[in-house]
Amino acid sequence: MSDLAIQLTNVSKHFGPKVAVNKVNFQVQKGDVFGLIGPNGAGKTTTFSMMCGYLFPSEGSLQVMGVSPSTPGALKGRVGALPQDAVLPPGWEVGALLMYWARLSDLTQPEHEARGALEKVGLMEAWKVQTQALSHGMAKRAAMAQALMGRPPLVLLDEPTAGLDPRIAAQVRQVIKDMKGTQTVVVSSHNLQELEELCDAAAILDKGSLAQAGTMSELTGQGAEFRVQIARGDVIIPEITSLTGVTDARMEGPDVLRVRFDGQAHKAEEVISRTVGHLLQHQVLILGVSRGRRLEDRVLQLL
């Protein structure tokens, strides 16, 4: 078995003349929490749907847990999925529905699984509620619960926290964090702060094309840049640039110094200490140092 949970090779999806996903390549390592990032209409849901076998790619190929998702029945027991915009079938009580689905997935203890999953998303009180009577947020959590049942090795969550109140959203994030390491999770969201907190790696999509994919530290440049918040004093840029390891330095606004360095050849702590020491020697007072840049900044820069 390879270490890859998901592999997309030149995957495209057309809806008539509309190209929803355009020649996308990326890979998801087993055990990672992987983020799919992109504005509305970027093709996140379409990509998810192809991974779940709902849609067939127009071109290219996918491997999900070592199988092609379009093979009938191949994903059974391997994947739990929270599809976006899929309505829960009406006329069921939540508990009964989850038990039915658990049985379809061949889980040995359907009731135990269903209760456990509902508890994880904090929806135990809805066990006896009819699906059509659930609010949007509750329906979303019930749908999330069905993706968690049986602890499948791969969990695909399309915007799991969208439309949830902050407390519940935090609970959902905790559920995702708990899966880290033992299960592979792919999650999409508009909330970049949330993804930065959760993910080990991510792919950034824009208008159907892949803008960048990589580990979170690659995306945020953790190992290649830092910022210094200046309180008082004059920074002499050429002196900073001439420090060992530093490749570029400039002021971002009146009191933020941004420094880039060669992260391959030099350790971050050494370059940062050297720079800060230099500043202190020259009577520059410092309010803070932050490594890398916000994922948000990277995304805004790319799109």
Binding site: C52, K76, P83, A86, V87, L88, P89
Partner: peptide, 19 residues
């Protein structure tokens, strides 16, 4: 009635479409 509102999607990750 299941394809339109996409509730079919909950089934097809668990069972073959033929089933």
């Amino acid at each position: 009635g299941e394809v339109g509102p996409r509730s079919m999607r909950y089934l097809t990750v668990r069972a073959r479409r033929s089933s």
